[in-house]
Design a protein around this nucleic acid. Sequence first.
DNA 1: CAGGTTCCTCAGGGAACCCTCAGGTGGCCG
DNA 2: CGGCCACCTGAGGGTTCCCTGAGGAACCTG
Lengths: 232, 232
Amino acid sequence: MDSDAVRVLVVEDDAVLRSCIRDGLTDAGYQVRAEPDGSAFPALVETFRPDLAVLDVMLPGSSGLQLARHLRAHTDTAVLFLTARDAVADRLAGFEAGADDYIVKPFVMAELLARTRAVLRRSGKLRSGRLQVSDLLVDEDAGEVIRAGQPVQVTATELRLLCYLARNRGRVLSKTQILTQVWGYEAYDPNLVEAYVSGLRRKLETNGDRLIHTVRGIGYRMNQAEPQMRAS
Amino acid sequence: MDSDAVRVLVVEDDAVLRSCIRDGLTDAGYQVRAEPDGSAFPALVETFRPDLAVLDVMLPGSSGLQLARHLRAHTDTAVLFLTARDAVADRLAGFEAGADDYIVKPFVMAELLARTRAVLRRSGKLRSGRLQVSDLLVDEDAGEVIRAGQPVQVTATELRLLCYLARNRGRVLSKTQILTQVWGYEAYDPNLVEAYVSGLRRKLETNGDRLIHTVRGIGYRMNQAEPQMRAS
DNA sequence: CAGGTTCCTCAGGGAACCCTCAGGTGGCCG
DNA sequence: CGGCCACCTGAGGGTTCCCTGAGGAACCTG
């Protein structure tokens, strides 16, 4: 359900180790996809769009090095190798293929997590401002709003307001609150908020459903994401 | 040329190892400053402005961890620890202090260089290789820009700006950010950035499509041209 | 030293945006 | 059912922001 989470793609043929890594990364809050081999790799990269790939070097079928080169050529995905081969030449080959880090088995999960965090921090993948409410995606870093897959153009002020609402989704926000937090005003001009909510609604609620709810006499509220089946 | 080189600050108390590292990094083309301890550290950070710091953890006087925290708090300098302590807890403490990588002695110079390159590439400090955004190809080393197969001549400043935008594609960059990162200014003269964006657009957007998007009230953004195949 | 290129500043025009206002709309309560 | 009040929304003025051509200063280059 955390679709604003950082996505990690794991490719490891050892089943025990694979589920171990998956659980560890999942517990750390990442959205994880674990594969036993690289057969579906290019397609997965397209659809899953991982921020980080944790790759075993020795894989049935194709080498992890090939996968890394594919990532480096086509994407900005970070690469972390995970291997039993401890020779210096192997490590150099890994970095040559574009790795960001290289961990030798056996390892402890804590170090994998620490290195994962370090790599993600450096590559700017630890997203701060990226919020999702149902089919609305607000990317504050990119200054971009996407509704049902379609990008929507909003102004700077509209974006600030939308971010504030999305961050506090599920809570009712008074107009005074909104004014002080979004505009920094002390003054109280409720119509300013009303006007901007109106503008946002016109741009976002094209298919009729209500995103920003009016709570009469109190303020506005943006609903939580629909209660879907929580698999995890 | 040399003032353009990547700067590396080494702090290592062992004299033999220190000169060994210095020579290796120097031969690799870096501008190196080597210190036996952290006594002059804050001043050096100010004047030398290193892109990367290679720190020994065990130092006479202050710990390398303290130096790393100082860097992390005040600068964007990358940190690479270099230590004889091989316990997992030590490594975790290193990453906790904000390290980008952690190498255990003894090591071979080739691996230090490989990891150095990986860290610098990720932190955007390395003028490495080619950046590709849709049909735009930027070769920072050769100072070459190719758009739709046709070479485009750009000046040195235009190239730096273009690289910075391409490296941070997908996110909005404020003019202040651009000024400090591309020009190194503290001052705020937005028109300087506007003028150069204007020039780049004239040279690059000859076929009408927009490469550099202006996000009014916020800054500029170069889109990462990837097919939106996300089936929700 | 002359010529060319590059870097930066300046200022005018134009467009986008922010906010206000006023009339319209719809819910709530007597 | 009628009045009141809160909310909605289209229009417009003032302002800010952005683009771009022109030009001087500084820097190579021959």
